[in-house]
Design a protein around this nucleic acid. Structure first.
Length: 806
DNA sequence: GAGCATCGGGG
DNA sequence: GTGTACGATGCTC
């Protein structure tokens, strides 16, 4: 029979001493099924220098742990290594786990071995041309099975480009009993509620009854709760199960509680138990996606927030927040006032709902990454950039008959890690205020350098280009072929061009979510190539490539700086791929013309773009940090929107009042162009602090303990406060969040720190907040305006006579 | 300043 | 098990 099928995950089991591929997915009718394939055998490649060795390998057979491990077959093959053809032998074995053993047995007899550590399932998908989530047309035969879903044996199959649309996602979230405060002791403290949220099923399960209980189901205890959880998952049989930090919290907690009750949670489609190891939770046959990982690793850079809490991420992506509920009260309410549990149940369900919606919103991005890397959704979620780039390259090896290069060994990694090379060019800004700033930047600088200059391990120092027409500007001993495109630069060029095409399409359909996700994914991946080439763990590592990329990057940006300077523009700042100039009364058009002129001289794919015009900006001298010059500036665009970069805005140990004052001062300086008003604003804040008009909540400093209390040698204010919490019976330790206020009590800072709830309005130390919080936050800004610290602290206000600004 | 350790997220 | 996440920051010597 024929079947239309969308693979969600691929797994293998060893049955009767044979590897059996299981494709888990759903049919076009929406039914979850498993397709099995018994025909795929594991293999790897070896390079040998004589025919006797090949012959010996083909007859290899040895006993280990009561099993005969043998080579099934050997075949002569031709493969390219970075464009050069090589003769190899393909060695097929019986089981995936035989591969390392056979490789080890023949290692001394071979020159080299390849592709011995590529996952069996990944190889299967690539060799069969299957892309997860894309529809397959398969000829199958129904077979008996012992899974919870029907099983079909594959007779033949064909991939298509049609993606899965209707996905059945289940989001889960737990609330736990934490009587002492903020620490988690899963061995002792039970799960109180579990929320489950999918398109058709929204419910909180808990084990204490209360009246206001819409969407709540009651069971008689924690053990029953876990059993009910298992039952619902079996019944719903979701395509994907998701949570927020569920690899690190929810599932490990669930697992520990199940163990406590001696329950085996058989969540897998094959009846296997939920497994948790290395902060990864696995359910056989139901991909578990801890959505925080993809958000942090893949989307992190493009988000404004630098906190990845559910609340902050949901606010930014969904424009929706968690319920404002004080979880510190949950244990108390649970013990003594169950009627109030309703609030917590609603909170619980809201968290699951937010997680569900995040998955819905982000799934198009996961789909795009799956398509481009050929990894499963589960794998895409687990991997970082270098691994995603590598998966993409591995996929491309098919089209070029290229061999997958080996991972570096331990020593090689160590060597690579200690190798340093020169990075990007940075033009230090002179601190000050500037009018009419124009920014240019290169569109995808590094990817276009790689493609335009054929920067590729296979094109490095070729024999045919000894004239060195395409060399590293800073190192004559490095050059790249101008005759034949290298494998890496070629596949990157395809990526860059594809992105340009889709960007055009997006211009015509700006609201198309899929196109947006596609452009975003292509951009992320292309931008990661440079980093990949210089990444110590990369299979296609190429130090000469990476250092040539930055060298050419410096060369191009300096060229722009020179041209701008020759045309009479003042350069105020430049970093890697961008340059800031001032117009100094010249029309905007003259800057645009400069951009056009430069573009006529650049290689085809490279392009300098006019990023924008900012009527006003301030550059502040950077503190001497570990990484040298930090970029710190604030710009005001033509729509009066403030763009702040590098100010220590959201540091944890900074109070709200310091942050608020900094932002207000920047606004006054840039928008109102009034330095005296800015100064007076700060003076007002200082007065309000002295007069205790600033609300307590604005002077609370939030921080977190990094180790156990008794491990601290240096007792900072947060440690002192944690000790106070402990003496009140709160269980504190590594990870506890501590909030405190510095009060007027005599002594050193740590003696002055108090818990916010111990204080009445105004019981804070104004002097401390003035000198250690507010002033440091604005000092550098006023330095630029020509004021000293004393001008801020002195009592008398600016009379505002001689305006600083024209 | 390099090298090692911990953290994030979660109640 | 065709193995050992990841990238940033803080702490220690």
């Amino acid at each position: 029979m024929k079947i239309s099928f969308f693979p969600l995950d691929v797994l293998y089991k060893v049955l009767d001493d044979k590897p059996v591929i299981h494709l888990i997915g759903k049919t076009d009718k929406g039914e979850k099924v498993c397709l099995i394939d018994r025909t795929f055998q594991p293999y790897f490649y070896a390079e040998v220098d004589n025919i006797e060795v090949t012959d010996k390998i083909s007859k290899l057979s040895f006993e280990e742990e009561g099993r005969t491990i043998k080579v099934v077959s050997v075949k002569q093959v031709k493969k390219n290594v970075l464009g050069q053809e090589r003769a190899l032998i393909k060695i097929t074995c019986q089981l995936p786990r035989d591969i390392p053993k056979v490789r080890n047995a023949i290692k001394d007899a071979t020159l080299n071995t390849f592709e011995y550590d590529i996952k069996f399932t990944q190889k299967y998908l690539l060799d069969k041309g299957i892309t997860p989530l894309n529809r397959l047309e398969a000829e199958v035969k129904k077979v008996p099975f012992n899974l919870n879903i029907p099983c079909f044996e594959i007779q033949s199959l064909e991939g298509t480009d049609t993606p899965l649309t209707d996905l059945n996602v289940l989001a889960i979230d737990i609330e736990t009993y934490n009587p002492l405060g903020k620490r988690f002791i899963p061995e002792e403290h039970p799960i109180l509620m579990i929320a489950l949220y999918s398109k058709k099923f929204k419910k909180v399960i808990t084990w204490k009854p209360f009246k206001d209980n819409k969407d709540v189901e009651f069971v008689d205890g924690e053990a029953s709760l876990l059993m009910r959880f298992q039952e619902i998952i079996k019944q719903l049989n979701p395509d994907i199960i998701t949570g927020y930090y569920s690899d690190g919290f929810d599932f490990p907690y669930i697992k520990t509680r199940a163990k406590h009750h001696k329950i085996k949670l058989k969540l897998g489609v094959d009846g296997s138990e939920l497994t948790v190891r290395d902060e990864k939770a696995n359910i056989w046959g139901i991909p578990h996606i801890d959505i925080i990982k993809f958000i942090r690793r893949v989307m992190g850079r493009t988000l404004d927030t630098d906190s990845f809490s559910l609340d902050d991420v949901a606010s930014e992506i969904l424009n929706e927040k968690k319920h404002d509920v004080d979880l510190d009260n949950l244990a108390e309410v649970w013990d003594n006032d169950p009627e109030k549990l309703s609030t917590f149940a609603k909170y619980n369900l809201q968290d699951a709902k937010l997680t569900f919606k995040l998955m819905e919103t982000i799934f198009p991005n996961i789909v795009e990454m799956v398509k481009i890397t050929n990894l499963t959704p589960y794998e895409v979620n687990q991997k970082g950039f270098s691994q995603l780039v590598e998966a993409f390259i591995i996929k491309q090896t098919k089209n070029f008959n290229e061999l997958i290069l080996n991972k570096p060994g331990h020593n090689e990694v160590m060597g690579r890690q200690t190798t340093r090379f020169q990075g990007a060019f940075v033009f230090e800004p002179k601190p000050g205020l500037y009018d009419d700033i124009v920014i240019f930047d290169f569109r995808s600088l590094y990817p276009t350098i790689i493609t335009s200059h054929n920067i590729s391990p296979g094109a490095l120092n070729c024999e045919c280009c000894k004239d060195k027409a395409n060399q590293n500007p800073d190192n004559k001993d490095i050059w790249f072929c101008t005759n034949k495109p290298g494998f890496i630069s070629q596949i990157l060029e395809e990526l860059v061009r594809r992105r340009m095409r889709i960007k055009e399409l997006l211009k015509q359909n700006p609201e198309d979510v899929l196109l947006k996700a596609r452009v975003g994914t292509l951009k992320l991946l292309s931008n990661s190539f440079y980093g990949y080439l210089g990444f110590f763990g990369a299979r296609w590592y190429c130090l000469e490539c990476a250092e040539t990329v930055t060298s050419l990057g410096r060369h191009y940006i300096k060229k722009v700086i020179d041209e701008a300077s020759n045309n009479g523009f003042q350069i105020i700042y430049s970093d890697t791929d961008s340059i800031f100039i001032t117009l100094d009364g010249k029309p905007k058009e003259s800057a645009l013309k400069l951009v056009d002129n430069i573009n006529t001289e650049l290689p085809e794919l490279m392009e300098l773009e006019y990023e924008g015009h900012y009527p006003r900006g301030i550059f502040v001298s950077a503190k001497q940090g570990a990484y040298g010059a930090k970029k710190r500036y604030a710009l005001l665009n033509e729509k009066n929107k403030l763009k702040v970069t590098g100010f220590e805005a959201v540091r944890r140990n900074v109070s709200p009042i310091a942050k608020q004052t900094q932002e207000a001062v920047l606004r006054i300086v840039l928008e109102k162009k009034d330095k005296d008003k800015a100064l007076n604003y700060v003076k007002d804040v200082l007065d309000d602090l002295k007069e205790k008009k600033i609300k307590n909540e604005d002077v609370i400093i939030h921080t977190r303990l990094s180790k156990e209390l008794d491990e601290y040698d240096a007792i900072g204010p947060h440690v002192a406060v944690a000790k106070r919490m402990k003496s009140k019976g709160v269980d504190v330790g590594a990870g506890t969040r501590v909030s405190y206020v510095i009060t007027e009590v005599a002594g050193i800072i740590r003696d002055k720190a108090r818990l916010p709830e111990e204080l009445k309005q105004g019981e804070y130390d104004a002097e401390y907040y003035i000198n250690n919080q507010v002033i440091p936050a604005v000092e550098k800004i006023f330095e630029v305006l020509g004021f000293k610290k004393e001008d801020i602290t002195s009592d008398h206000k600016q009379e505002n006579l001689n305006k600083f600004f024209k």
